[in-house]
Amino acid sequence: MKLCCSPSRLATDATARPAASSTRGCDATRQTAALAIPGGQTYLGTNRPYFPIDGEGPLRNKKVSAFRMDATSVTNAQFRAFVSDTGYVTDAERHGDSLVFQGLLLKGTPPSPAIADAPWWRMIRGANWRDIYGPGTADRQIDDHPVVHVSSNDATVYAAWAGGRLPSEAEWEHAARGGLGDVLFPWGDREPNDTDFQPCNIWQGRFPHQDLGLDGYVGTAPARSFAPNGYGLYNMVGNVWEFTSETFKVRSLKKEVIAAHAGKKGFRLSKGGSFLCHQSYCYRYRIAARNSCSPDTSTSHTGFRLVYRAELLNWM
Rank of each mutant, 00 (worst) to 15 (best):
T247E: 11
A162H: 01
C277Q: 13
G179I: 01
C282P: 03
D54S: 13
N229G: 07
Q78C: 00
A175K: 06
T220L: 04
R17L: 01
R305Y: 01
Q279F: 09
D194M: 03
T23I: 09
N153E: 02
G163M: 12
G232C: 14
V148M: 05
D215Y: 05
L166M: 07
S292F: 11
F185C: 11
I258A: 11
D154H: 06
M123A: 12
F243L: 07
F267S: 01
N47H: 02
R17C: 00
L269D: 05
S84C: 01
I53M: 15
H145K: 07
I287F: 02
Y50M: 10
R94V: 01
L104C: 11
G136F: 06
H149T: 07
I124P: 00
Q41F: 02
F197L: 00
Y217L: 02
V89Q: 13
R60C: 00
E171I: 10
L214Y: 05
A162V: 01
R251H: 14
G238P: 07
G103W: 08
N76E: 09
A223K: 05
L35I: 15
W121E: 06
F248V: 02
E171S: 09
N201F: 06
W187T: 09
E169C: 06
R68W: 02
R80D: 07
N229V: 05
D144Q: 03
D196W: 04
T15V: 12
N47T: 03
S152C: 00
D85S: 14
T42Q: 00
K254A: 14
S274N: 12
D117E: 08
D215S: 07
G273K: 15
R177S: 07
Y283F: 04
L105Y: 15
D131S: 15
Y158S: 11
A66L: 09
T297F: 04
L105W: 15
G238H: 06
H209Q: 09
V218Q: 10
Q31S: 02
S245F: 04
F248D: 05
P110L: 03
H174F: 04
H261K: 06
L105C: 13
G178C: 06
L312D: 10
V237H: 03
K255V: 12
D154V: 07
F197T: 00
Y158F: 15
D131Q: 14
H301S: 14
G205D: 09
F197G: 00
P167S: 01
T90S: 14
D154M: 07
R30G: 00
G266E: 04
L180K: 12
E173W: 12
D154W: 08
K107A: 14
S292C: 09
V307R: 03
P222R: 13
T12Q: 01
Y133G: 06
D54P: 12
A16T: 10
C26K: 15
S73P: 00
E191S: 03
R48T: 02
F226E: 11
N239P: 05
A221I: 02
R290F: 02
V307H: 07
W203G: 10
K107M: 06
C277D: 15
G134F: 10
V218N: 12
R80E: 03
H145F: 13
S252D: 06
Y231K: 09
P135K: 15
A92H: 03
Q102P: 03
D91A: 11
W241M: 11
A77C: 01
D131H: 14
Y308D: 12
W121A: 07
M1D: 13
G188E: 10
F207D: 10
